[in-house]
């Protein structure tokens, strides 16, 4: 479980995160949603330690990441996996080498075992046969799947995904969502997904944190989102015609039932 307590982050005079409090549960897909520029990515970067918060604490199973020593931070980082918006694969390495990279750095297994483990992960994300290709030779969706395989190869306790569906078509987005969801539930990982894709919100959002202008405005599940009485959340979620109609239908049905 990851807990954020009274987190503030400022860049010179500009306060980007203001008193964020949130809890991200084990074995669940925790989504951080919000408009572009609301502070989602800054929050994610603070959680993974790429930025240092101005004040507040980030508790990884009661270990405060902010106050850990450098060595302890490195140790904790080895329990994390991250999927970046741009996949962030190493261009000079093949797909297999990319997936094997964390094993090569941290595992003391022999080469054959490391390769087997990497191939297993590639099979898990349905990428059998692509191991000798380079990142520049595969599609965006495949790159994201390689990034997922690389993130899970060391069996992390915490998985972070920064807009994993950005730049992908709806069908491929669903595939990526299902993969992340499957891995989270099977391996009981604490997964945090940063997204503004409404399909992901409605499909896999078990614990959603809505960020607006640097504040955590609402927290709940995708089942509760329809009934959330938060104007800012409603404005964000139901901004598209289809979702607004769905909301109206839901309200009508609820009214009939009542």
């Amino acid at each position: 479980m990851i807990q954020i307590q009274h987190l503030y982050k400022s860049f010179e005079d500009r306060e980007v995160l203001k008193d964020i409090n949130a809890t991200f549960k084990d074995g669940e897909i925790n989504l951080i949603i919000g408009q572009s520029g609301s502070g989602k990515t800054v929050l994610m970067k603070n959680i993974v330690g790429l930025l240092t918060p101005t004040s507040g604490s980030i508790l990884y199973d009661d270990r405060d990441f902010v106050s850990l020593s450098k060595k302890e931070k490195i140790k904790l980082r080895r329990e994390m996996g991250m999927i970046f918006q741009s996949a962030a694969l190493f261009d000079s390495l093949s797909v297999l080498e990319n997936v094997m990279f964390p094993l090569n750095m941290f595992s003391y297994d022999c080469y054959e075992d490391r390769k087997k483990r990497a191939l297993d992960c590639l099979a898990r994300v349905n990428l059998v046969g692509a191991e000798n290709k380079f990142p520049g030779e595969i599609s965006g969706g495949m790159q994201k799947r390689v990034a997922i395989a690389r993130a899970i190869v060391l069996e992390p306790k915490y998985l972070f995904c920064d807009e994993p569906n950005s730049g992908l078509d709806p069908k491929t987005s669903i595939v990526i969502d299902e993969l992340i969801s499957g891995i989270t539930h099977e391996d009981n990982i604490t997964t945090i997904v940063n997204t503004h894709d409404m399909n992901s919100v409605m499909g896999i959002g078990e614990n959603i944190t809505f960020i607006c202008e640097g504040r955590a405005e609402w927290q709940g599940s995708n089942k509760e989102i329809m009934d959330a009485s938060n104007q800012k959340l409603d404005d964000f979620i139901f901004s598209s015609d289809i979702l607004r109609q769905a909301k109206e239908l839901h309200d009508q049905q609820k009214g009939i039932k009542v």
Binding site: L50, R78, M82
Partner: peptide, 10 residues
Amino acid sequence: QQIDALDIMG
């Protein structure tokens, strides 16, 4: 973000 990826891996 390849350098960020390395940093997050530890």
